[in-house]
Design a protein around this nucleic acid. Structure first.
Lengths: 222, 222
DNA sequence: CATCGTATGTGTACGCCGTAAGTAGAACAC
DNA sequence: GTGTTCTACTTACGGCGTACACATACGATG
């Protein structure tokens, strides 16, 4: 009998991320995770301190996959690249934004926050003061998180996969177009043409950044 | 003995929203809700079909409190007013955006979606085509939801209440400012000056809308 | 080699959760 | 009266996170 590899934190987090990607946040339970590792639930506690620790761990892992933009770029492009990089990394693992938003995960390691630090640096380059940078950071983060959350199951989201299509048509069926003429027109359009969350996000990001640029222009009369 | 008022859907939803406001989303359980009504858990099922139904119900309730902007306003101001109205209604009941984002709630009634319909109408007024309006709607919704979610417990959120202050200072303690110079500077600032999520959101919204306006200007050479 | 402390995995149990199923009692129609 | 319907209650099931006690295996030490 091939003696099985001993457990360790790495392997637990690997399996947790994989399970969560496959089954969603509510499918990630200690018992199911243990089963996927061929082990009993309580064994996990020898390697992680509790479930929150697991969620922090996978969030950190995903944060650490966020590519950092080239600091030589103009600040707008750094902001754009940083936001896109966060969006892309998180959209590969939609469980993470969910866990962050619901406060089930709270990564505090420097490694996790580095992408954000880079973004703030670019905002300082642009001439924002502390409050301005804080607000711009919040705007970008909100757009990233909001886009991710709405594209996964949010109320007006473009849920393109799993229950997605069925979901949108359920909306259309239950909705009377007389009371919601504009919105139902949009929903019909999305049904005919599909929905591309990443492209939509990129477009939204560009609009926000153009607003940031306009504001930054008032700061340094150059 | 004063015979107690009989239960009904209204009273169940009232109590559910109140309990959720007080105890948060994870504090809203069928058993606790029943107890707050002086009743056993299973009795609730005579008036709502399950827990998802309750979450839909309270979401609809809060949606219906969103004020609709005056359609006579210029479109930018309609968009601004609609987004602010959503933000304000939801920030009084932070459970609702959470339930929406985690797909635990999925209101489909016309009443709930009216505020969104109005927003789309304003975007059509601005000259956006279907795809443009869809994207602009997504941008605004994402910003609203993202801001709400991050201000409640998000990873870089301005959690001003409950565990809030302690939380930010925990960050500061665990973080070494050498690796995160910019971000730690911002956190220090927020600790000294506090954080005002609503003002921050308004600022972010204005930046996004200025981006929307710029885009709309390219559509109608007017 | 034997021994022992530590690290790792297991079994059981507790108090939560949502809810299916069955039942008891009251209100009402006939 | 009898029957129907509606509401609330009781019990129970399978799931959750995890505390606690226990077993076993391993590496260092004698």
């Amino acid at each position: 009998m091939t003696r099985r590899e001993p457990l360790n934190r790495e392997r637990v987090l690997d399996a947790a991320l994989e399970l969560a990607d496959r089954e969603g946040l509510e499918g990630l339970s200690m018992r199911r995770l243990a089963k996927s590792l061929g082990v009993e639930a309580m064994s996990l506690y020898n390697h992680v301190s509790n479930k929150a620790d697991i969620l922090d761990g996978i969030a950190e892992r995903v944060f650490s996959q966020v590519e950092r933009p080239d600091p030589a770029l103009p600040w707008q492009e750094q902001v754009r690249a940083a936001a896109l990089a966060m969006y892309q990394a998180f959209s590969r693992h939609p469980v993470v934004p969910l866990a962050l938003a619901t406060d089930q995960s709270n990564p505090t390691s420097a490694r996790a926050l580095e992408p954000i630090d880079g973004l703030v640096g670019a905002l300082f380059e642009a001439g924002f003061d502390d409050l301005g940078a804080w607000r711009a950071l919040g705007a970008v983060n909100s757009l990233v998180m909001g886009s991710l959350l709405l594209s996964t199951g949010g109320f007006t989201g473009g849920q393109q996969q799993h229950a997605g299509a069925a979901n949108v048509s359920a909306y259309i069926r239950e909705m009377d177009p007389d009371r919601l003429p504009h919105f139902s027109r949009l929903l019909r359009m999305t049904r005919e043409q599909g929905v591309r969350p990443a492209a939509d996000f990129e477009h939204a990001l560009d609009m926000l950044i153009s607003g940031l640029v306009a504001e930054a222009a008032t700061l340094r009369p150059a």
